[in-house]
Structures are given as C-alpha cells and as structure tokens.
Amino acid sequence: MIPVSQFLGICVDIAFLLLSISFIVIVYRIVTGPTLPDRILALDMLIAVAIGFIATFGVHSGFYLYVDIAIALGLIGFLSTVAFARFVLTRGSTEDIPSALDEGRDQ
C-alpha cells in the first residue's frame, strides 16, 4: 500500500499533465477558431484551466489560499464571458436601445 502523501503527489502530477495538455488544445482553438464565438468559448475554457492550475498548485504547495484566488478568478472569468457574449449579440454597436424601438417613437 502506498502512503497517502505519495498518492496525492502522483495525483497532482497527473492533474498538471492533463491541465497542460488541455491548455495546449485550447490555445490551438483560440488561434485557429473559425468564428468569434469559438474564440470566446475557448477563452472561457482557458480561464477554467487557469483555475485548475491555481487550485492544483495550492494543493501541491499546501498553501490553500490559492483556492480563494481561483474562486475570485472564476468570478472575473464569468463576468468577462458575459461581456463578450453581449458584444457578440450587439456586434460592436454602441447603441443601448435597439433601432426597432427607435422606429416606433418616430411615428
């Protein structure tokens, strides 16, 4: 039977390996993404992988304050994804009110 600390070290190494592979795949999708929504989704996944890296490093180092940092990054990542989604919906338009509502006021 292997000791718990050695088993945890093996699991952390495997997690770092899997996160590194997913990071490479996500960067490839960001560079070659055919559309803007594909790139935005890849950026959102990149934030999720960064959260995984931070949390895994926190477990590896034994300093669990990194988990709080990962939670804060998750909140920031969520807000940035919402902002990007709003940009895609408006396609960069600077108007807050859609033009269809403005046409009804002219009559």
Rank of each mutant, 00 (worst) to 15 (best):
S5W: 05
S5V: 08
Q6C: 02
Q6V: 12
F7W: 07
F7S: 13
L8N: 04
I10Y: 04
C11T: 13
V12N: 05
V12T: 11
D13Y: 11
D13C: 05
F16I: 09
F16L: 15
L18I: 08
L19Y: 03
I21F: 10
S22H: 09
S22N: 12
I24T: 14
I26M: 15
V27N: 08
V27C: 13
Y28H: 15
Y28M: 15
Y28T: 15
I30W: 03
I30T: 07
V31Q: 14
P34E: 13
P34A: 13
P34G: 06
P34H: 12
T35P: 08
T35Q: 15
L36R: 15
P37H: 08
P37F: 08
D38T: 08
D38F: 08
D38I: 09
R39W: 05
R39V: 08
I40V: 15
L41A: 07
L43E: 06
M45D: 06
M45C: 14
M45R: 08
L46P: 07
L46N: 09
V49Q: 01
A50F: 14
I51C: 13
G52P: 00
A55R: 03
F57Y: 11
G58I: 03
V59A: 13
H60W: 12
H60S: 11
G62Q: 04
G62R: 00
Y64A: 01
L65Q: 11
L65M: 03
Y66P: 00
D68P: 00
I71N: 01
I71D: 03
A72G: 07
L73G: 01
G74R: 04
G74I: 03
I76K: 02
G77L: 06
G77H: 06
F78A: 12
L79P: 02
L79D: 02
T81W: 11
